[in-house]
Nucleic acid binder design. Structure first.
Lengths: 337, 337
DNA sequence: GTGAAAGCGCTAACAT
DNA sequence: ATGTTAGCGCTTTCAC
């Protein structure tokens, strides 16, 4: 096979000449637009296939002023939660002719701004992006873009256009209420130390509010940086329990470190959930199969992706107030008594 | 804020008029191309920023016949391994002005064909795609595309252009040799039943070859469908050990089900690694922190992504033979004696 | 049912 | 250092 880097790509004109049909009609056939006789249709299709013609969407997009792309902007791919959201988006976009294009920000507003600028320069038909906190420039770009903008995951804040998500403040508060009702009183929190992870921050705030309403204060905190893993969960748990051995509950900012904590506690022989209760956040089912099921809150990831896609595709119209609020769902597991 | 869906987007011409500078010079400033005086530069930048101008890459791409996109085509995002590959690609592309665009095939050749067609219609500067098995039409498209095509993950097969990966046959064979050397003889295999997961298939083939070379045959097999989770690992392990209680080793097609198997065996009180040895594949560190570390093979995911990106970006030239073969790395863990 | 002409918003190439 | 012209490969629009 000869080096492919030489040839120039084929154009509509090539197909037109090979089939003896005008460029315009070729274009119609290839897009299934307008009436074309079965005979010419056949000729065109054959010619296109024989030559190996691949349409040029750059030219098509410029001419039609429409591009079938949806920009999806998320903080991370290694987080386990975003692939789920993407799955929902992708499933719902499948029959619309729209295609998701993913950009990753690494939780950096500056990077988000760059990614948005870059994506908007392709003139997509819509934007789905995680979170409500954006730089001023990012908000301006989005507001000026003239396309639907769906902010997802989080409902605690101001919309640019339309929001689909859950209230993380509420998720945190409800978890606090659950564990207080179960009689736990010496509560610790283990979470990520990322000022830019606003959802984790809001859960923590809601959690503290919930405790405060019952006159309870956090009795311990442990923060970490970087990604989440079972190992990190173990280390943090060991540390917080060393510093505050009388804790009777640990609330983790996600299931992965929560599961690590659970393993550590089982190793050390803690009586769970009686001596010590545990809970995480997200509701990832990858981790079902651990010795106990960690209590958690389902963040409704797939459904958030689906609804956002439906909105951006125009399958569904935004409600009054432009906020679709889903309910975070408590999943008891075995680690709360 | 008024509904943004009305306004038409700004053009170079708008910036030109607002700044009193020709479109061409505006274009030069915005792309940092050619000499522009500091004064006009300033004027243009101010005007662009004030107006909120976002360049139109559709038009730019058509005019320049160059697009700074790299198509990255992978089977799945929920597999844990592909985010790592993407991380490598993305890191290495960061300073090149090239941007990865991800397409997902769900292990379906038909879908791969559609995704490729779609991506190629954007005339990207290069393609990185997982695996060597493609439909005839896909291979033709790639060969005709005129751009660099890097096939990744797997080196056991024919290249379209250039390959970066490991030999999964070798990975399987080496694992067989390790465990035979450790004295295991009653070997079982637990794997996915996806005819289209060619890499898993090749590992299994290499594994059986390695066993056969010592006159050993697989003493049990268990297949599953769908995604991998700890729970599925437990179930499969229970099943295979019920049917063949005398097995002394289990080789899993990935770390996630392997870890589930490990948990099951620990629950049941198996003496690991003496009575029963276990190994997985991939080398994911998310699972460090389990009671024992599962033996596995590091598939060199991040490095594969990096090298592929270097090739496609022209930072590195393909070797003679056009195959970059990395060595799968055995990681002993605690589950092989 | 089919075709011809104009133009989408940029940049390459060539002035000046 | 800046401007002018032509044209990238399609689709829109209008004509037949």
């Amino acid at each position: 096979m000869n080096n492919p880097r030489s040839r120039r790509s084929l154009t509509l004109r090539d197909v037109s000449e090979a089939s003896g049909v005008s460029e315009m009609t070729v274009s119609r056939v290839l897009r299934n637009r307008g009436d074309v006789s079965a005979a010419t249709r056949e000729k065109v299709l054959t010619a296109a296939k024989t030559l190996g013609y691949v349409p040029n969407k750059i030219a098509g997009g410029l001419a039609s002023q429409r591009v079938n792309l949806i920009a999806v902007v998320i903080p991370s791919l290694s987080n386990l939660v975003f692939p789920d959201v993407l799955g929902g988006v992708s499933a719902e976009l499948d029959d619309t002719g729209l295609q998701p294009v993913v950009g990753v920000t690494n939780y950096s507003p500056a990077r988000e701004e760059m990614v948005l600028y870059d994506m908007l320069s392709w003139r997509p038909s819509g934007v789905i992006l995680a979170g409500l906190e954006h730089s001023k420039a990012s908000r301006a770009m989005l507001a000026n873009s003239g396309i639907p903008v769906i902010e997802i995951m989080d409902t605690d804040g101001e919309a640019v256009d339309t929001i689909v998500g859950i209230s993380h403040i509420r998720a945190g508060r409800e978890m606090a209420e659950r564990l207080l009702a179960a009689g736990y009183r010496r509560i610790g929190f283990v979470g990520t130390h990322m000022p830019e992870d606003h959802r984790a921050r809001k859960r923590m705030e809601g959690f503290e509010q919930g405790l405060a309403a019952a006159g309870v204060q956090l009795a311990g905190r442990e923060y970490y940086q970087g990604g989440s893993s079972l190992l990190k969960g173990r280390e943090l748990t060991e540390r917080i329990l060393t510093r505050a051995p009388d804790l009777d509950f640990l609330y983790y900012s996600n299931d992965m470190i929560g599961a690590g904590g659970l393993l550590h506690c089982l190793d050390k022989g803690y009586d769970i959930p009686n001596r010590l209760g545990l809970a995480g956040f997200n509701g990832v089912d990858l981790l079902d199969g651990l010795p106990m099921r960690l209590a958690t809150t389902d963040a409704r990831r797939v459904e958030i992706g689906r609804r956002a896609a439906r909105l951006v595709a125009g399958k569904e119209t935004p409600p009054e107030g432009r906020v679709i609020q889903l309910a975070p769902t408590f999943m008891p597991g075995d680690t709360i008594r």
